[in-house]
Design a protein around this nucleic acid. Structure first.
Length: 270
DNA sequence: ACCACAACCTGGCCGC
DNA sequence: TGCGGCCAGGTTGTGG
């Protein structure tokens, strides 16, 4: 599922269930879901520690634990997290279960097994490479301009680069470029000042609206608990090839860019 | 610094 | 019904 709005939604929904809980047991069904340390070390180290907070940075979830440890989770394409009672039946794609001290469990499911968990004392080593949080007030249009400067790659490819800005993925990159009226194939360094300002505004507006709608729900695979997002109803171009542009009626076009399907209006996006 | 491509995985869908 | 090919909201590593 997850780009910034979806990960933010997961964090918000998990927070009240997890803050203050102690982890009593870890069960790893797919050891490679644990990126670091080994699955055995992970289980040993995570047990007995209390969850102090639930936070998000880019598309990462951060769970600061007692004693300076942090649990980090990246959902990648199909990862999901649910809080369920201990006796709740196992989902077929369950990869890791953390038992809590209140009779509930935090379950990580992941059909495609791309998602990863880390247990670390230095989370900055992982999330420190990320670009700025687009919704942070300190992220300005000037900041964006600096980051685009000197980059000749297509603007869409640069928006997907997490070191440039953290949190945009394929859906929201397309939607943001549509809202800003910018052709996704344009070299990033060819954007005018006005366009960078429009892009900056679009990034913030679209992400904020998507969070308000609790993100987008696109594929049918989506276990319950996490209330389904509603932003898919607001998508203007993403996966709408051939359908009329909501502004001018021109059929939405699809191209391959940075190895990803890219949707845009050839008339409104110049 | 950039691009293309493969790899990591599972499963749905489409056409034959 | 079966099979091959293509697609999927992400990231990393390789080689050119």
């Amino acid at each position: 599922m997850p780009e910034l709005p979806e990960v933010e939604t997961v964090a918000r929904e998990l927070r009240p269930h997890l803050i203050g809980r102690q982890i009593t047991k870890a069960t790893v069904y797919w050891p490679r879901s644990i990126a670091c340390p080994s699955a055995e070390e992970f289980s040993k180290l995570v047990c007995g520690r209390r969850i102090l907070n639930v936070a998000r940075r880019g598309k990462y979830l951060l769970f600061p634990l007692a004693d300076g440890w942090t649990l980090l989770i990246h959902l990648r394409m199909t990862g999901n997290l649910h809080v369920q009672p201990t006796e709740h039946p196992l989902n077929r794609h369950t990869r890791v279960i953390l038992s809590l001290d209140d009779g509930y469990t935090l379950r990580f499911t992941d059909q495609r097994k791309f998602g990863r968990l880390w247990l670390t004392q230095t989370p900055e080593a992982i999330v420190g490479k990320l670009g700025p949080e687009p919704l942070d007030p300190s992220f300005t249009a000037r900041d964006l301009a600096t980051r685009l400067w000197g980059r000749r790659a297509p603007i869409k490819a640069v928006l997907l680069d997490q070191r440039c800005i953290a949190g945009l993925g394929n859906i929201y990159a397309d939607e943001v470029l549509f809202a800003a009226g910018i052709d996704p194939r344009r070299p990033a360094n060819s954007l005018t000042d006005t366009e960078v300002h429009r892009l900056h505004a679009a990034i913030r507006t679209i992400l904020a609206e998507a969070i308000r709608a609790k993100g987008s729900t696109l594929r049918d695979y989506r276990p319950p608990t996490t209330g389904s997002g509603q932003f898919q109803a607001h998508l203007q171009v993403f996966r709408r090839e051939g359908k009329p542009c909501p502004i001018c009626g021109t059929p939405v076009q699809r191209v391959r860019l940075a190895q990803r399907s890219t949707f845009f209006c050839p008339h409104c996006q110049r």
